[in-house]
Design a protein around this nucleic acid. Sequence first.
DNA 1: GGACATATATCGTTTAACAATATATGTCGA
DNA 2: TCGACATATATTGTTAAACGATATATGTCC
Lengths: 114, 114
Amino acid sequence: MSDQSIQRDLKKGSAELLILSLLEAGPRHGYEISKLIETRSSGAVSFRVASLYPLLYRLEDRGLLQGRWVEKTGQRRRRYYRLTPAGRKMLVQRRLGWTAFVEAIRDITETEYA
Amino acid sequence: MSDQSIQRDLKKGSAELLILSLLEAGPRHGYEISKLIETRSSGAVSFRVASLYPLLYRLEDRGLLQGRWVEKTGQRRRRYYRLTPAGRKMLVQRRLGWTAFVEAIRDITETEYA
DNA sequence: GGACATATATCGTTTAACAATATATGTCGA
DNA sequence: TCGACATATATTGTTAAACGATATATGTCC
């Protein structure tokens, strides 16, 4: 397992939390979400389009997001997503789950020599 | 994506860190590692045997662990694994990578209303 | 008009955790 | 003695999420 695939696997469980969090403050479109993830993490984390767009579709299918096409002159068409009430509830759950998981990893991995 | 599969995916990138960490202090066998993960995390994290044993084989194949069969009367045979020098180096990398990842997630997801 | 950022779409590949199942031994109580 | 349970390792096939690659299309800037 390369460092790269570790990074890939690390992302698997956290992607949903990332998207929901970024939509908490208001609607955003896919490309914007992608760039936010990169810039806020200083490049440490990024999602490829072949991961991000299907993830948005899944979240919409599950009723956590609602998408809306917006077309303006001088811009490519964009699909803006906003959190549904169910999405907000799930965000709360995902934050709790992530915190608990990080704590569990710390409990397991902290050195015994400390 | 169910809560259960999220938990599954969360584990994907962290399993290697867990194993390497638990072998830092000395050799352990697979079943022991499995129980340690459960007890130290108070049941929050556990790996099934169909995940754990193949992972140990992969780590040994990659030269990060070295396994040794130990048979004692009054006990089932056990395979004890210890960290190789390469495994210790990898452990350092995995700790750094995990910390960086957790920080990145925090940077991306922290609420904008704070 | 050429390079690059913006913006979305999708096929096929990879791979790690797991459910299920199997084998085998030791312990403890009824 | 027999059944239940913990200990201990092994393996087959399934599932699902990120990604590489590729595609389409528009806006900007030199």
